[in-house]
Design a protein around this nucleic acid. Sequence first.
DNA 1: TATCTGACGATAG
DNA 2: CCTATCGCCAGAT
Length: 96
Amino acid sequence: MTRRDPGREFEPRVRRVILALRAGEVATYGEVADEAGFPGAARAVGNVLSRGEGLPWWRVVTATGRLVPGHEAEQSERLREEGLTVVGGRFPRVRV
DNA sequence: TATCTGACGATAG
DNA sequence: CCTATCGCCAGAT
């Protein structure tokens, strides 16, 4: 069951955060988890995103800018269409 | 309740 | 820059 999500709000919240991303905006799994109110649940976010339907999955990348394994070509193309720059199958993310 | 899974993340080598 | 490990989380069995 859910250890830290008694109300099962994880998925709904995660979906909402991802749906809130506009064209040209890219977030990491960790950022999505954080904004959803579940810091540290980046991995779980990936699970929701992988199974979710109707979500702008291409706007979510790993913390290092890695794209989705198996969908790099399509994701890269979609991101480019939104005016973003993808180099070497990677999204140039500004590390803080 | 115990274990395993996976579109993650940080660190070490 | 790469792979190998370990730690974390929600879900599914």
